[in-house]
Structures are given as structure tokens and as C-alpha cells.
């Protein structure tokens, strides 16, 4: 994978996790499989990230009994996580809009 692309993806990974959890609580496997399809990353990456986000107070965890096997650890967005999501989302939207505008400008000049 192109190393620039890796840096981009790393940067938005946390934002994507926050956005997923804002819709509904979820467990590690579910988050990993949904994101790895979209962002093309190793599924194992999610656990160090979740651990970090939990310590940062962005997410909290609770256990849910599952029909098969041991209880599952679910992640829920905290108040801090929701604020963080809104801030990051606003920053992301502003940034991508600015970049898109510059790229478009470039296209018009060259064409």
C-alpha cells in the first residue's frame, strides 16, 4: 500500500469508529469487519485503537451475554466521544471541502 495512503487512513480511522458507534453500540468484531472492508486495513488494528479510545474516555464498554460462547464486549460512545466526533467531523468537512476546491481550481487551469 502507498505510504501516503496509509497515513490518510490512519488519520481517519478513529473518526470512522466514532461515527459507527454514534449510530449504534457495537462489538470489536463487528466494527473491525465493517471498517476493514471499507478502509482496507488489518482487522487486528481495531483493538489497540479501541483500547486507546477507552483510556481517552471516548468510549465505554459493557458485556452482553451471547447465545454462543462467552459474553461479548460492546463499545458505547461517551459524552466526550460524541463531542469529539462532532469536532472531528466539522474539521474533516471543512478540510475536505477546502482540498476539493483547490483540486478543482487546479483542474480548470490545466484543462
Amino acid at each position: 500500500m502507498d505510504s501516503n495512503l496509509v497515513q490518510f487512513k490512519k488519520g481517519v480511522l478513529e473518526l470512522c469508529v466514532l461515527a459507527l458507534l454514534a449510530r449504534s453500540d457495537s462489538y470489536g468484531y463487528d466494527i473491525a469487519s465493517r471498517l476493514s472492508a471499507a478502509i482496507d486495513m488489518g482487522e487486528g488494528t481495531i483493538y489497540p485503537l479501541m483500547r486507546r479510545m477507552q483510556k481517552d474516555g471516548l468510549v465505554s464498554t459493557y458485556l452482553v451475554e451471547s447465545s454462543s460462547g462467552p459474553p461479548r464486549k460492546y463499545y458505547r460512545l461517551t459524552e466526550g466521544g460524541r463531542n469529539n466526533l462532532n469536532a472531528q467531523k466539522a474539521a474533516w468537512t471543512d478540510f475536505t471541502r477546502a482540498v476539493a476546491a483547490i483540486l478543482e481550481l487546479d483542474l480548470e487551469k490545466t484543462s
Binding site: 462489538y27 470489536g28 468484531y29 463487528d30 473491525a32 469487519s33 482487522e43 487486528g44 483493538y47 479501541m50 483500547r51 454462543s68 460462547g69 462467552p70 461479548r72 464486549k73
Partner: peptide, 16 residues
């Protein structure tokens, strides 16, 4: 704790 995360991942994978 970390190992439990990954064991859970394998379990969920099997279930899927």
C-alpha cells in the same frame, strides 16, 4: 484482557 479481545474476535469469526 488483550488476549480476551482477540479470542472474542476468533469466536465471532467462527459464528460468522
Amino acid at each position: 484482557d488483550i488476549i480476551a479481545d482477540y479470542e472474542g474476535h476468533f469466536d465471532a469469526g467462527r459464528a460468522a
